[in-house]
């Protein structure tokens, strides 16, 4: 009897080691794969904007992709914020507990179920012609186009967390504010938002983290140029999309450069998610 308990406990412990091994293995593989390119270019790999795979004149700098990633994600989060925040108030405050709220919530959840490639197709056939028609970009492939689709993709993540946090603000506090003569808008800005602040902030951090790593939809809409974009309506590339685009034909130093970009992406998303987690820990005490 006693033995079987020990065996089960050991098995469970060994299983937990799998997660650690997989993660450690990932770090190891990415780092060792990235070493050649860092040996060749050092820090210039991160700060240089030149990306030239021509044999004999090979130069790899990831700056255009780092900038492309940050720009698209930033546009996404800026566009996502008013929409997701309004929707959270709609579901969690204004129409709380009604049929209207549950239908809206379900529709927002459905956004999370659409595969990235389908967003890409929709962006390509619906959004891109619109951007062209508006004269913002000749081909419609741009940082902005990718950012808009990314914004839609991260809305469900930001909305669902923010809604939960808004619902958690105690009714006692809201009633106290109403009993002092506040309007609903004043209650929202003086009671709900200050009390839910850190949670709301975290939900956008995590949504930002998701935007950083999105690949397919961005690849299909960003235009895939290797240069630093001159503006948000210029084409560009993100770290994830350059890996997807150029992996098939890569070997040697170029492959190492792509792995190094994957390593950077891994580190950046890790940091962003870590920050989000820290905030949650700090405020949930």
């Amino acid at each position: 009897m006693f033995n079987s308990e020990r065996i089960v406990k050991t098995l469970l412990f060994l299983a937990s080691a799998v997660v650690i091994l997989v993660t450690a293995g990932m770090v190891y593989s990415l780092t060792s794969g990235a070493i050649p390119v860092f040996k060749e270019f050092g820090l210039r790999f991160i700060i240089s904007s030149e990306w030239n795979p021509t044999e004999g004149r090979e130069v790899y700098g990831a700056l255009p992709f780092i900038i492309g990633t940050l720009l698209t994600s930033l546009i996404a989060i800026i566009l996502c914020f008013p929409l997701a925040f309004s929707t959270s108030l709609f579901i969690g405050e204004y129409y709380r507990g009604t049929r209207m709220a549950s239908i809206t919530g379900t529709m927002v959840d459905m956004l999370a179920g659409i595969p990235s490639i389908v967003y890409g197709l929709w962006g390509f056939y619906v959004l891109r012609p619109l951007i062209v028609a508006l004269g913002w970009s000749a081909q419609g492939f741009s940082i902005f186009t990718a950012g808009v689709v990314l914004a839609i993709m991260i809305i469900p993540y930001a909305t669902s967390i923010t809604t939960e946090i808004i619902k958690m603000v105690s009714n006692d506090l809201k009633e106290a504010a109403y009993s002092l003569g506040a309007t609903r808008r004043e209650v929202i800005f003086n009671v709900i938002v200050p009390n839910a602040r850190s949670g709301i902030f975290t939900s956008y951090i995590l949504a930002f983290g998701r935007a950083l790593g999105e690949t397919m939809a961005v690849t299909m809409l960003i235009g895939n140029s290797n240069m630093i974009p001159k503006g948000i309506f210029d084409s560009g590339n993100t770290m994830a999309s350059v890996i997807a685009n150029q992996f098939g034909e890569a070997d040697g130093l170029k492959l190492s450069a792509l792995i190094a970009i994957a390593l950077l992406l891994f580190v950046i998303t890790g940091i962003i998610n870590g920050i989000g987690k820290l905030i949650v820990k700090k405020y949930s005490v």
Binding site: M26, F266, N273, G274
Partner: peptide, 15 residues
Amino acid sequence: VDILQGVPSIVLGLI
């Protein structure tokens, strides 16, 4: 586990 959940899928493909 949280870190793993945040890793972009393209990076997992590479791995």
